[in-house]
């Protein structure tokens, strides 16, 4: 693996691909789902080949979402699933996004905000997949369960789609220099020192140990 002057590699190719399969399948399922939910957006089913085709595309992208969700949970459980000391402080200071904070607790690979997003994706993503699976074979379930499934599916979409907008903003223009971590993986050392100093330290220690 080639080195880049003044840069560190934040993510490996597996992480990036898994992330984008998850993101892509969610966005496509969202797109087709909104197309079926809002009748004045019939343009979506029209370009995709009709409502019947869209039903199957929605189911298919949902299955891909479910599989990549499991992969993401396994992959990032250690780094994003576990809250550590300092995360509470980070949350109380809103990550330094809303007012000026001098002493931000140093974050690891993922900061507390990203961990919260991870947990929202895990909880509501699993809810989406389970209710979606129920809806595929809905007649096999008692009507109460089936009715709740439709409602919880819609609720989870509301939560995740809204949170997704925060994620997109903070991953792109809200934090210059961040998007590349998910595109080709490399970020500047300054970026890493600023956003995830604890991770950078561990990373450097590991690299040193390897060299010795």
């Amino acid at each position: 693996m080639a080195n880049r002057e003044g840069m560190v590699r934040k993510t490996d190719a597996t992480e990036r691909m898994t992330h984008w399969i998850l993101a892509g399948s969610f966005l496509f399922a969202l797109f087709t789902g909104l197309g079926m939910m809002f009748h004045h957006w019939s343009i979506i089913p029209t370009i995709l080949g009709g409502y019947y085709a869209v039903k199957w595309m929605h189911i298919f992208s949902g299955v891909v979402f479910g599989i990549s969700l499991i992969a993401v949970i396994i992959m990032w459980w250690e780094d994003a699933g576990k809250f550590v000391e300092g995360d509470g402080k980070w949350i109380l200071r809103a990550g330094g996004y809303l007012w000026d904070v001098k002493d931000m607790p140093p974050s690891g690979k993922f900061n507390a905000g990203q961990k919260i997003f991870f947990w929202f994706v895990v909880v509501f993503g699993i809810l989406l997949v389970i209710t979606g699976l129920i809806m595929i074979n809905v007649l096999a379930f008692p009507v109460v369960v089936a009715r709740w499934a439709y409602m919880l599916h819609a609720m989870s979409v509301f939560v995740l789609a809204s949170f997704l907008m925060v994620h997109i903003y903070l991953g792109t223009i809200g934090n210059p220099g961040t998007l590349q971590a998910m595109l080709y993986g490399w970020v500047t050392r300054e970026w890493a020192q600023f956003h995830c100093p604890r991770w950078l330290e561990e990373h450097d220690n590991k690299a040193q140990a390897k060299q010795e």
Binding site: N3, G6, M7, R9, P176, W191, H195, Q208, K210, Q211
Partner: peptide
């Protein structure tokens, strides 16, 4: 949220 410039330790060792 711009990165605050701090003196850097140099390039990444092994990528």
């Amino acid at each position: 949220h711009e990165v605050e410039e701090k003196p850097s330790k140099g390039g990444d060792a092994d990528g």
